[in-house]
Design a binder for these strands. Structure first.
Lengths: 180, 180
DNA sequence: TAATTCTTTCAGATCATACTGAAAGGAATA
DNA sequence: TATTCCTTTCAGTATGATCTGAAAGAATTA
């Protein structure tokens, strides 16, 4: 049995968990994901419980969340009643899933909010003889720059996703023109 | 006085705070940042306290953190002993600051960890007649894909940043066409 | 149907983080 | 120097997120 293998995996799992915590993902969820990522065979709930030392409830909840994200899959083993879980291992696919989800849940709401904010001041009836006219104009300018930035980032991410490793090459070339 | 202006700004601040919370930034810190972003004039600690209803200590701590990140600046008003704070309003500059910092604190450690993990199994003496040989090979393959992905993302972010504020204006337009 | 095996749920406990407010620290003014 | 004004710090508190474990639920087998 390879001790180094075990220690190497444990290290990766620990660090992946820490990173997840910095990105608003619970440490345990990230650790479970890492554990499945470094396991070539699907694991069951009890495997997760014993390897990460977490309770059944905790394992169950986090596994479900990961399934909902689409980062892991439920699989069944012939002749076994237990459910097993297998990881999506294509990192580009993983990136697409995470990007899509975070964009939907975090970027889109802020874009909608900015548009709403712009509307609110645009419809203001007192415009034209308002002492705050200057401030409002500056406010609108800033909101607009933010919106343009978010749209530009959307385009970049779309391009990356569109072709995975391949699309990335195209994007790199495109960006190279501006690099100098 | 423009009521719609006030309500519009309040909405933006609220949403920006919520978004920050999802990204591992404390709600208050994100709200202070938003408040300064939508204010054309620098604000002092008391302004922040009264507009966001937070304590002096809380305001002080979070303002300092924002200064440390480089997202806001300390400024002084002639004839006033108080310190005022002004926001970096160039969104591309903001993006560069955040990207640089998060990369240093979160991406680089995971890259180092992966390299360390690879080393650990490569140096394993039992290689060759290890029953886990297959699993280790698969493990190495997965680590390697992850590393390549992270490197590719690094390249993209470098290029976006390298263009800087000016180049980005052009890039935005170019990407906008590309996105259609 | 009852027994078995596994999964999900959730109230309460635990733990981490953020916040308050008052006291100490520092810098400008008189 | 003393006073005033402002900022920072930090111990204690509040808040919120996460986790546990046991009970209920669901699916399969006998």
């Amino acid at each position: 049995m390879s001790d180094a293998f075990e220690r190497s995996r444990a290290l990766f799992i620990r660090r992946w968990g820490e990173m997840g915590a910095n990105w608003g993902i619970s440490r345990t969820m990230a650790e479970i994901h890492a554990l499945l990522f470094v396991s070539s065979k699907p694991l069951c709930t009890d495997d997760v419980m014993s390897q990460l030392q977490v309770s059944r409830g905790n394992a169950s909840m986090n596994l479900r969340q990961l399934v909902n994200w689409g980062l892991i899959y439920r699989v069944h083993q012939a002749g076994d009643r237990k459910e097993y879980f297998d990881c999506e291992t294509d990192v580009w696919q993983m990136f697409e899933i995470i990007t899509r989800e975070r964009r939907r849940r975090e970027v889109e709401p802020i874009v909608e909010t900015i548009e709403k904010c712009q509307e609110m001041v645009r419809d203001e009836p007192k415009r034209g003889r308002n002492p705050q006219e200057e401030d409002i104009a500056e406010y609108e300018r800033r909101l607009n720059e933010m919106l343009e930035f978010l749209n530009a980032m959307n385009v970049v991410f779309n391009m990356i996703i569109k072709g995975g490793n391949k699309g990335m090459k195209g994007l790199t070339k495109l960006l190279a023109k501006f690099g100098k």
